[in-house]
Write a protein that binds this DNA or RNA. Structure first.
Length: 519
RNA sequence: GGCCCCGUCGUCUAGCGGUUAGGACACGGCCCUUUCAAGGCCGCGGCACGGGUUCGAUUCCCGUCGGGGUCACCA
């Protein structure tokens, strides 16, 4: 039975790199009809776990990366929180001690540091002298009498080597002599991650450990424990990590300022901020950052777009297929398709996937996705038929659900419509204004207010006047929408309706020539 | 610094001894066009370097260089 796991720490946010790791674990398990387990690595008990965990659970659910066992869903190997499994860890430490694979060490941190410094000065590989290692109960009594505190260390081999058969990297050899006597239990009795990790993977029957590359160097000490304890050795697959845009350094949420210098990253952020600003979202580095999954949910990205984009960071099916939904990924995923080199997170490509996925949505689906943004934006929500028509007219101009806010002009009170001064200055000229007013008069007499009829009306007007469309359309657009860019002109008019078009044109003309109006 | 991993267009990648080195995103140009967006077409652009092995290396081996990870009583 294939069982994989994702083991986040409750940090308060779901890192986009973590998403990729979780996704690959999920895909691999599902592909082989196995289970995907979510385990919470909260051995550091300082934090408020529940609060710091929620964004991670929500993020995974939003993306559709559902776990078969773990927090909230439970499972036969519960609990899935490391903080609740200390009894098992203690038993494992005792067993390691009993089998002579670990020892109680009474060295003070300064004493260890001194040995390290000496080795460094002599340019030698540091190896602990085990001077304060307790060999027996008498040693323990003696050291304790000195008032020393102890930690438990692994008694690592000092010769020979270990070969890890990594499913992605092939065989990797480590010399035992290079390994340290790592601490597995702290002086305060709490346990170190590596010990907990090994115990849990055994307990949960994890068959494949699929994790980021940074753990490769940690694997020997874990395998040492696995062997010492007589556990089953899982298969290992060390994924390339998700790197910064345009660099090979690990992506970190703390380097936001640096990433903002990247054009594509900055574009994503600017776009997101413009939406966030309009829905009154308080923006901080912790909750609003393209390195964090929340960002995408908050501005209205599609989870399938994020999944599609992240699936291709370090994995490819072939030389042409790139557009995937989750079921496709499950069908096609394989560790053989995972690349070895660090792969940069590409904000532009993620955005491109968003576009590709969003256009596949029907107007009805887009309506459901967009509506919440109007609510959050405190806007008067127009009728569903109107919104549906607007969404259809907007077409692919709405790229993320939050973009609906760009079209608020269409349902805001006519008196509140803002005018872009530069556009007004450019389009309201002594030549264009009379034409605008003349066409407005014709609109006044027009009864068929369909987009096609309006276009015909315009064409007739142009023919009669012997003028070109751009001599009047731009002015009309600014008069009716306040700016020079937007939907098709006639769709705009049709959407707005006769009454509102008249009011807007009147107001625009009045704004442009206040003196004439008042005198 | 020790150990380990990695190295194909700017980015993500296909390639698994013989290819005009393919695709996607981004970028540039053209077309379409009432603006914007989309779309269509074209273009720019890559095997880190040096030795081998071989009839033949992007591909296999070694070295160099470069990038990264890890060396905690963090996970």
């Amino acid at each position: 039975m294939i069982r994989t796991r994702f083991a986040p720490s409750p940090t308060g946010y779901l890192h986009i790199g973590g998403v990729r790791t979780a996704l690959f674990n999920y895909l691999f398990a599902k592909k082989h009809g196995g289970q995907f387990i979510l385990r919470i690595d909260d051995t550091d008990r300082q934090r408020n776990v529940a609060e710091a965990l929620q964004p991670i659970l929500d993020g995974l659910r939003w993306l559709g990366i559902n776990w078969d066992e773990g927090p909230e869903t439970g499972g036969q190997y519960a609990p899935y929180y490391q903080s609740q499994r200390t009894g098992k860890y203690q038993a494992a430490v005792d067993e390691l001690l009993r089998r002579g694979a670990a020892y109680r060490d009474f060295a003070a941190p300064e004493e260890i540091q001194a040995e390290r410094d000496t080795a460094l000065n002599e340019k030698k590989t540091y190896t602990y002298s085990r001077t304060w290692a307790a060999q027996n109960d008498d040693d323990v009594k003696k050291f304790e009498a000195e008032g020393r505190q102890s930690v438990v260390r692994l008694k690592m081999p000092r010769s020979g080597s270990l070969i890890i058969h990594d499913l992605i990297r092939g065989d990797v050899e480590f010399q035992w002599a290079d390994e340290q006597d790592h601490v597995i239990q702290r002086a305060d009795g709490s346990f170190i991650y590596h010990l907990a990790n090994v115990v849990d993977d055994e307990d949960f029957r994890i068959s494949h450990v699929i994790r980021a590359e940074e753990h490769l160097s940690n694997t020997p000490r874990q395998i040492f424990m696995i062997q010492a304890l007589g556990y089953r050795l899982p298969e290992y697959a060390h994924l390339p990590f998700v790197a910064e845009p345009g660099s090979k350094t690990k992506l970190s949420k703390r380097k936001l300022d640096k990433y903002l210098k990247n054009k594509d990253f900055s574009k994503l952020m600017t776009h997101g901020k413009s939406i966030a600003g309009r829905i009154g979202l308080e923006i901080t580095d912790d909750n609003f950052n393209p390195v964090i999954t929340d960002f995408y949910e908050q501005v209205g990205y599609l989870p399938e777009a994020v999944v599609n984009a992240m699936a291709l960071v370090g994995w490819a099916l072939d030389d042409k297929t790139e557009f995937f939904f989750m079921p496709d990924l499950i069908e096609h995923f394989s560790l053989a398709g995972v690349t070895k080199g660090a792969a940069s997170f590409d904000p532009a490509k993620l955005f491109a996937f968003q576009e590709k996925h969003f256009v596949t949505k029907t107007a009805e689906e887009k309506y459901e996705l967009c509506k919440p943004f109007l609510e959050k934006g405190n806007l008067t929500i127009p009728s569903k038929p109107f919104l549906l028509k607007l969404i259809e007219a907007a077409g692919d101009r709405i790229k993320v659900a939050g973009d609906i806010l760009d079209f608020a002009d269409f349902f805001m009170p006519d008196e509140a419509l803002p005018y872009n001064e530069a556009d007004v200055a450019k389009r309201f000229t002594p030549e264009s204004l009379p034409l605008l007013q003349e066409f407005a008069a014709r609109l006044e007499r027009q009864d068929d207010w369909s987009s096609a009829a309006l276009e015909a009306l315009m064409q007739q007007f142009l023919d009669e006047k012997q003028i070109k469309a751009n001599q009047v359309i731009h002015t009309l657009r600014v008069a009716v929408t306040g700016k020079s860019t937007g939907l098709g002109m006639f769709e705009t008019l049709a959407l707005l309706g006769k009454e509102r078009v008249r009011r807007r044109i009147e107001r625009a003309v009045a704004l442009k020539t206040p003196q004439e109006q008042t005198s």
